[in-house]
């Protein structure tokens, strides 16, 4: 029984670690700095008419980016956001969501 429990815990830890590795925060930071910061600001605070994204959770960020990538109209800045999301891979989106949600408050 103890052996089975250890196996389950070990498997779960492996999955958690794999998930953490899948979301590469430093890769997300690199994309953010290159493509996002000039509108949303270095700390996600929002600037001009571009909204703050600080405090948003990873699911929200990933959902929005996925919608923009799919060509859905989400809000008034869709024409600006859609081209930014067009070439993002699923991993890119996961990385960005992880970076934004864990870095900006």
């Amino acid at each position: 029984m103890k052996r089975q429990m250890a196996l389950i815990i070990g498997t779960a830890l492996t999955l958690v670690m794999a998930q953490a590795q899948a979301e590469d925060i430093s890769a997300g930071e690199a994309i953010y700095t290159q493509s996002c910061a000039h509108c949303h600001g270095g700390s996600g605070q929002g600037m001009g008419s571009f909204p703050s994204i600080a405090g948003q959770d990873a699911d929200y960020i990933a959902k929005r980016l996925t919608q923009y990538r799919a060509g859905e109209k989400v809000g008034p800045n869709t024409p600006l956001m859609a081209p930014m999301a067009t070439d993002l891979s699923d991993d890119d989106i996961a990385d960005l969501a992880a970076y934004i949600s864990t870095t900006f408050e």
Binding site: S49, G75, P76, N77, P79, L80
Partner: peptide, 12 residues
């Protein structure tokens, strides 16, 4: 109000 344009939010 918002309209169907880039930067289309109110106040634009």
């Amino acid at each position: 109000t918002e309209s169907d344009h880039p930067f289309g939010d109110a106040g634009a």
